[in-house]
Each structure stands twice: as C-alpha cells, then as structure tokens.
Design a protein around this nucleic acid. Sequence first.
DNA 1: AGCCCCGACACGTTAATATG
DNA 2: CATATTAACGTGTCGGGGCT
Length: 494
Amino acid sequence: MDSNRHDSDKSTIKKAHKVSPEPCTSKHSKHDTHSEDRTTNSNVFNKRETDVPVVLKTKKEKRKTDETPIVVYFDLETTGLDVKTESLTQIAAQFGDKKFSTYIKPRCRIGKWALENTYLKYDSKSSTLYYRGQNVSSKEPPEALKDFIHFLKSFRRPIILAAHFCHKFDAQILYKQLIDFKLWELFSSVVTGFADTCVMFQNFKPALRCHKLEALASFYLPAEKFSLHNAVDDTRILKSLVEKKEMKICYGMTVSKHATKLNYTFPKNLVNINIPQEKKTTKDETPIVVYFDLETTGLDVVKESLTQIAAQFDDQTFSVYIRPRGPIGRWALENTHLSYDRKSLTLYYKGKKVTSKEPQDALKDFVDFLKSFSRPIILAAHFCHQFDAQILYKQLVDHHLWEDFSSIVNGFADTCLMFQKLKPSLKYHKLEALASKFLPDERFSLHNAVDDTRILKSLVEKQGKVDMLRNEFFQTCLQTKQYFPKGRAVLRFR
DNA sequence: AGCCCCGACACGTTAATATG
DNA sequence: CATATTAACGTGTCGGGGCT
C-alpha cells in the first residue's frame, strides 16, 4: 500500500513535469518589457518556433541584433542519475571566454558512482564539499542557480543552452531544480531553448558508434587533457569539440540547426523532445533519372499488352509504337487514339498509319536506349509502382529481357507518390490534374506516351523547390528497392 | 547500476487512389 | 471497368545509447 502511494506520487510528479502549464503561462505574462512582438498568448508557441531560426542567418547577416540567441555551453554534475530525486553538485557554463562555475551543496547523499567519478564528497555535518579531497567553496542550490541565471543574464541576449545529452538529462534536472526553487520564471525569461549536442553529433557523425562525450573527446581532441566528469572541464571540452575546425563546416549549420529544431516551448516539451531524424544520406552514386510512360491495351497488368513506350532523359527521347498481342480495350481505343488492324499488322494513331514494332523488338530497343547512357538508371513514371513497373516487368520477363534490363536499372520512382507527398493539399494527383494546375499553358496530347513523358518531366523539373523535390524523389526511388532487393529481380508480382 | 526514450521491425487493418 | 500498393494508423517487442 505504501509502495502504491509512492508510485502515484511519482507519477504525479512526472505529470507535473510533462504538462505543467503554469510556469509557461506565467512566463508569458512576465515576459516583460522589450518583447512587444509577442502578441497574444495563443500565438506564443508559434512565435517561439519562428524565433529560433534567426540563428541560421547569423552566417549571412552579421549578428547585429541583440535578439539573435547565443549558444552557451554548460554541464551539470549531480548526486546521481535520477532526474527527479537527485541533487546538484556542480554547474559550469561557458560562452566565448566567459566562464561560470559553482559547486553546490547537495541536498541528498552523493551516489556511489558519482562519488567515485566526479570526485565530489560532501560532509553534511560541516556542510563542506570536497573535490578530490580538497575543500572547495560551495553554495546552497538556490544561490548557485541564481548565480547561474545572473551569469546568463549578463549577456543581455536570448540564450540557447547546449549540453551533451541535455534533452534527457541536464535540461530535465535543471527544470526540476528551477521549479523547486521557484526560479523557473526568471530562468526562462533568458533562456530560449536547450540544444542537445549529443543528438547533434549523432546526426552529424552517424558513422561513429559511440557518441558519449568521452569518446568524442578522445577521438577528436586526443591531445586535450581534461578531468572527465568535472563540469568545468566537460563544458570546455564540449565547446572545443563543437567549435573544432573540422566541425566548422557544419558548425553554423548543426548547432543552430539543432537549436532551431528544438522549438523549445518552455516548459511544455521539456521532457519530451523530438528532434526529427535526418534521413540518412543516400549513397553518393547518383543514378540518372529517365522518365518514361507506357500505353497499353487495358488495365490488367498481367493480361494486357503494350501499344507504346516513350522515354526521355534530358533532351534525348525514345519512342516506339508496338503491335499489341490482344485486342485494344474500349477505353484505350478512345483515349490513346491507337487502333490496330490485325490483318495488315498496321497500327493507327488518330487514324493515321504509324510504324510499329513487335513487342520483342520494341522492348529490346528500349533497353538499348537505356543502356546507351552507361549509367545507373532510375525509371520514373506516374503511378508506375502500380502500373508501369509491373506491366514492364511482366513484358520483360516474357521476352527474356529482364536480366539485361535490371543490370542497368536501379529502381522505379513513382512520381505520383512523390507529388502526393509534396502536395498533400491537392486532392488529385493524376497527371492530367497536375499538368493543368502547374503547366496550364502547356499543350499536349494526353495519353500519348511521348507527350505524357515530356509533361511529366517538366512537371517534376519545373517545380520551384527543386531540392525538396529531389530529396523526396530519391526517397521514393529508394522504396523501389523492393523490386531489386539484392540488385536482382524479385517478384513481388504474381 | 536505473531509467527511458527511440528507432527498427513485424504484424494487421482500412481507406484512398491512380493506371489504360 | 481491376487491382495492388501505400500511407496511416494501432500494437507489441527488442535492443541500443546516453546521463551521474
């Protein structure tokens, strides 16, 4: 029963952690004087979120404004791991050459691990703190925290606090302590967010197996001597690490990026921070993207037969009409304007005779066209995962060309999927709809493979956000690995 | 050690959607 | 008109990685 009570106690504490709207609102009201741009309470979250990216611009615009947040590194030592119950023993922080450090008289016993590794010992009778056996001056937690805040305040700029693993440790314990000593309001009027350098390194150096501070330090700063688990040293090391030359390239990007992504709305997300994981970068070997389109006698990918293939890369185009093996379905007849006379083996497009080939030859030509680029290829078509890729697969297998084909084609990209992701607000993503929306002036003959291919290419390439498109695009391509799990054809088709 | 968040998988279900 | 796939859920399990 006792334990029960205990548990529920704990959970309420936790809840208070997570939700605790109180300090938040009080913060706004308090958020006095200079920030007149914060209009209403309801807007504040958004404001905050848009607030931070300012950091990014520090690169271009000289940091002239006082409103640009600065990054202050910090580190805490505590009596143990539990962010809810343990007590502080040390705080250190650093911005530029400005350093802050204070020892703190813990309110509870120093845990065994901490005792041995932080070298901090406390004699509660004489209320004296010892570091490596030496008496050091120490303060009561509220005083120490106040000093800390004053240090931060002295910069007269918004502050992003950066520490290693701070989202899950330092920020949380600090929050708890600040709330307990009623200093949260004061604190949050200066600090706009926390940045977790550990997350940063994990994203930035995914190849490293281990991202603890110790490992990073010994890897990147092997010459540096420091006393691990002393807050001052840890802070200094962290700063050197992040600001190291090699990191410099990314420094502007990474720190600010992570700070940006923090979107720290105090204290709502304090416990629960979610930094979107960067998608792992794809291999550098970038295949070319060839757009293509097929026309067929109908919908059934297994039974129906090809009538046309078109493809395009840059300005190199490929097109071939194909004599179908079966009758052309009614819909196709009316919409692709292709008709076939079996007896004379003649294909007509819009009533006019066109040269056509047997499927075998047409497919061979198509494969040869693709091969002519001598580069890995990603074939892109609209809705191709469900249609073009499947019918093509069937046809290529039937004509013993799949081996050849799959030796150069890395995958299929479904541009329909791409646009669905890219323009979720659009109800329809069929080629026709996209074309009339984004290329209203373009004239083309719908359901002619050549035109459809051209239009598709323009659509993809003329969109404004090229980068985003590309990214999305390749991501979609990646999905097609399912077709080639081991670089080899595997039948996800019946 | 104690904790807990996360991402990775592995399922299953459902509704929407484009292709000729 | 056929139809497979996907995204978007929900569920459950498992292991890894960090902090003092």
